[in-house]
Computed example of a mutant assay.
Amino acid sequence: MKTTSVSTAALSQSLRFSLVRAQMELTRAQKELQTGKVADTGLALGAGTARTVSLTRDFERMQGIVDSNSLISGRLKITQDALKQIAEASQTFLSTLTTSSSGDALGNVTQASARTMLDQLTGILNTSYNGEHIFAGTNTDVTPIDDFTAPGSGAKAAFDAAFQAHFGFSKTDPAAASITAAEMDGFLASAVEPQFLGSGWEANWSSATDQKIVSRVTLTETTETSVSANDVGMRKLAMAAATITDLFDGNLGPGARQALIDRAFTLVSEAVGSIADLQATTGLIEKRVSDATARLNVQIDLFERQIGNLVSVDPYEAKTRVDALLGQVEVSYALTARFQQLSLLRFLS
């Protein structure tokens, strides 16, 4: 008869291997109990893993778009609030111009109103949200509008140079009092309009781009989600406010001043309508983003349930398995300790 030798070392080593396996299974079971999902998708699903990976990828993409839409909605809300402020300021300015046109307002009152309009317009168009300028088009890291009243303003320097070049003297020269209404209209049409409604706007006033931010709001849908300071309504407001702010400081006569007021009234009236259109367009974009987010949330819920059906585990079964493995590990520790205490010398003694 052949006998196989048995040693306490062999038994101890065998228990150690069993303990390691039990600890690994316990770690996996505890993870499943904590997450509610299988610890190893490939091991649990086999060939079905590809479907889970595809569903998870689409789920994460949609969740990322929903998060992005939240930021877009915040930016659009700030934009809408800013447009409302500009609309209110322009209405106030228009009321002053109406009074001035009828001769019932003093020149300093008209100039003060124009200065207020210009300061508010500049401040609002330079508004930032989350570190990005919301009216800068795609140049979100650049302040879009030059401050006309600030020292060293390039826009003001270009405006004063245009006046000097057109008339041959400065606005403070006594000769400015002889400028007629027709001459002022000619100056506004030939020298001032190009600075605001032409290429001079980008050269001296604006660092914004005409191109607006285009954002993906669903997996297959994109839309413009910003407003540019280069909108014609903003330009007309700036022209009306800047011309009166600057030239009413000079020695212009009544005829030239009246021409400025009349032109400003026309510009602001047109700008009010343009800004109302911007508000309506922005509102439509807000609704579109909101609807897109709602549709995505429905899809996310469906994907989440499909993924859950594939990888979720029964919490009661997972708890039972963890308890069983904990008991097994504890028994293994106890047996290993008992075997380590076995000794021939201790037996003989």
Rank of each mutant, 00 (worst) to 15 (best):
A150Q: 04
R235Q: 06
D210P: 02
S170M: 09
A155G: 05
S207G: 06
Q211E: 15
G233Q: 02
T172R: 05
K236F: 04
I244D: 05
A242L: 01
F167L: 02
E224I: 06
K156Y: 09
R216M: 10
A155E: 08
A240W: 03
G200E: 00
T209K: 00
S226L: 04
A157D: 15
R235V: 15
L219A: 14
G154I: 11
A238H: 03
L237G: 02
E193K: 13
Q195M: 15
F159N: 02
L237H: 04
S178G: 12
S226N: 10
T209F: 06
A189R: 12
A177I: 15
D160G: 07
A229I: 05
L219S: 13
A189Y: 08
W201S: 00
A162C: 10
A203Y: 12
W205P: 00
D231N: 13
A181C: 11
N230H: 06
Q195Y: 10
S190F: 07
T225C: 07
Q164E: 08
I244V: 14
F167A: 04
T209A: 06
I179G: 00
A165Q: 14
S178P: 03
F187H: 06
G198C: 11
A162M: 10
K156D: 09
M184C: 03
A158F: 12
S228T: 11
L188H: 02
A177E: 09
K236M: 08
L197F: 12
V232C: 05
K171R: 14
N204F: 15
A238N: 05
G186E: 14
S228E: 04
L197W: 03
V232M: 09
T223I: 13
T220W: 11
T243N: 11
T222M: 13
D173A: 14
Q211W: 05
S199E: 14
T222N: 10
